[in-house]
Every structure is written in structure tokens, then in C-alpha cells.
Design a protein around this nucleic acid. Structure first.
Lengths: 171, 171
DNA sequence: TTCTTGACTTGGACTTCGTCCATTGTAGGA
DNA sequence: TCCTACAATGGACGAAGTCCAAGTCAAGAA
């Protein structure tokens, strides 16, 4: 019983200063798009709020980089040591199907998860080091495809990935 | 010794009518872009021509669909039963680095190989059944990205994937 | 507050896709 | 015909991801 309680409050337990709730901003959290928004949206959709899901959502929100599932798991483990890999995969899958997170497979290796799903954007990838940046080109990329080239498809989305060398790697 | 000879000529051996060399057009070969072109180009680049490499190249040329490495292997095995999976992977990797074949990872699962590498094009993917079609939109997709959105990257290529439902799946 | 219950989590086995490497085979030049 | 450097083999290995039975627990009801 004791162990269970510790399990669900690990983050609070291990924090210096004691008792800071998981949602309080910490020095290395971004100021924009507070996690409470996402948590609220999820709760409103009937998502059962568990400590595991909260931690995964926080990890994604905390860093606006494009983490792999394993990286998400590694960061989640820092806050909730027992969290299982399968849980991270499940949760990411749900966030994707809810449209809160976008799944990228830019390199054919591990998928990456982009928490910036609420604003349409595209990606700029360094072929050398794998760095990914969000970019916002002009115009609607869907409009470029003429009807004659749609072959009866109902096209609903375009993934555009620009590839090249980042400033570091081209130096 | 006998076995070795059979091994390097399996396709000829099993052909009805006997002795038709592997490169002769057969009823189910496409007429366009004859394989001999590709084989010639590869030979001109100093590629050592082995039966395995020939079979892999023929499989890619024979069907202008986008096969996975395993599908290429399965089709290659029909012609050359002993061909190893590793050999198919090696050969595909070489064709890609020679620029003769394009590697696609449209779904984060197995990579697919597109033999139509000599003409710039983009892809239309059915999110339901995975069908892939080549498409040729207007304009240069690279031109859409303004300098202000390049963050110092040297952008050399764009991958554009349109996603939606094919006529079958939307019915 | 204490049930209750169905949704969630766990962890380990399993699958799929791909790579590595020591050994064996062979294409193509001398 | 012989050599040798390059290519193929096949089995082990590894990374990424899925599956599932058993255990746990969030949140609504009493």
C-alpha cells in the first residue's frame, strides 16, 4: 500500500523543496501553451487522468523538440521510475489519434513525436545530424496538386519535409 | 561445381523454351526504360555484375510499384532461390546511394524502394491500404520555402507526401 | 468515506525490420 | 587458366514497436 502511494507521487517525493505539484512551472519549462491546457482538453474528452499519462504529456510539453518514443520514455522515467515502455507507446498513440501530437518518420528509424500539432507547419531536417526544425512556408501545399494528379484520391493532408545541412553540419 | 553453375543461371534454367537470357523482354515486363539501360549504367560505373544484383535490379524494374525490401527479396527468391536477405539489403542500399532508386519511408514501417528515381516526382499515399502513386505537381516545391524560414540550412531536397483515401478505400 | 468496476499499466515475450560479420564464393582482369 | 579483391551467405544481433494476461487504480455511485 505504501509503495503504491509512493508510486503515484514519485515526482513530488523526489523534488527538492518538497511538495511542488507536477504542473507548476519550473525554470526549464517553456512559458507558452501551458500543459494545463492540454490536460484540460484531455480531461474534457473523457481521458482518464493517470500519473503516467500526465508525465508523458508533461515531457512532450516541456521540450518543444521532436523526441522519439524512447526519449520520451527516458525522460518520463526520471519523473516516474516505474513507467513502462508499453505505457509510453500507448499514451503517445492516443495523443496522436486525438490529434494533440503529430507522429513523424523523417528518417525511417524511430518515429518522432511533435507536440506542436495545433498549428500547421512543416519540417526542415538535417540529413547529417538529424536536427529537426518547424517551418512555416507561404501558401497551402495542398493547393499545388492539380485534380488531374489526384487519381480519384480524397487528399486530406500533405507532409512536407525539407532536407539539407544545418549551419553546424555545413561548416 | 555443377551446383554453382545452376546457382548463377537459375532463371535461365527454369525458363520454358530454354536458354532465353534473363534480359530478354518477357510478356510481363514493362516496355519502357529497359533494364539493360540500368544494367549498362551500373556496369559503366564499375559495378561488378553478379546474378544477385541483376535479379534485384530486374525485380525493381519489372514492377513500377513501391516494394519493401522484403517484397523485393521474395520476388528475387522466385528467380534465384538462394539469394540472401542481406544481399538484397546491400544491393538496394547501393542502388540508393548511386541514385538509381529512391528510398521512401511513408508510414514508419518498412522502407519502400522506388525505381523511378530519374524523374523528380512526389507521392500520393492511401492512409487506409498503403497504396502509393507517383504524382507530378506544378512548380518547384523547394521554391515555396522563403529564406527567412531556412534558418541557415542548405536545403537540397524536399519530400512531399500527399495523404488521403484512394478511390477503393473511400467507397 | 468506501466500494465497485472497467479502463489503464505492467513487464516480458514476441515480431518486424534492418545491420553486422566471419566465412565462402566468384567476376573479371592478367 | 589462375588470382584476388570484391560480393554473397546465413546466422546472430539489435532497435523499434506490439501484444497480452494479470495486476492496479481513477473516478463515479452509494
Amino acid at each position: 500500500m505504501d509503495e503504491v502511494q509512493v508510486k503515484n507521487n514519485v515526482k513530488v517525493e523526489v523534488r527538492a523543496g518538497g511538495g511542488a505539484p507536477a504542473l507548476l512551472p519550473s525554470p526549464n519549462r517553456k512559458q507558452v501553451a501551458p500543459m494545463s491546457d492540454l490536460l484540460e482538453r484531455l480531461r474534457a474528452r473523457g481521458w482518464r487522468m493517470t500519473s503516467q499519462r500526465r508525465v508523458v504529456a508533461e515531457v512532450l510539453d516541456g521540450e518543444h523538440v521532436h523526441l522519439t518514443a524512447d526519449e520520451v520514455h527516458a525522460r518520463a522515467v526520471e519523473r516516474l521510475p516505474e513507467i513502462a515502455r508499453a505505457t509510453v507507446y500507448n499514451t503517445l498513440g492516443e495523443l496522436v489519434s486525438l490529434g494533440e501530437v503529430v507522429e513523424l518518420s523523417t528518417d525511417g528509424r524511430a518515429k518522432r513525436y511533435d507536440p506542436n500539432a495545433r498549428h500547421a507547419h512543416q519540417h526542415l531536417v538535417c540529413v547529417e545530424c538529424g536536427t529537426i526544425r518547424d517551418v512555416h512556408p507561404d501558401g497551402d501545399p495542398l493547393a499545388v496538386l492539380p485534380d488531374s494528379e489526384r487519381y480519384g484520391f480524397t487528399v486530406s493532408k500533405v507532409d512536407v519535409t525539407y532536407r539539407g545541412l544545418c549551419p553546424n553540419c555545413s561548416a
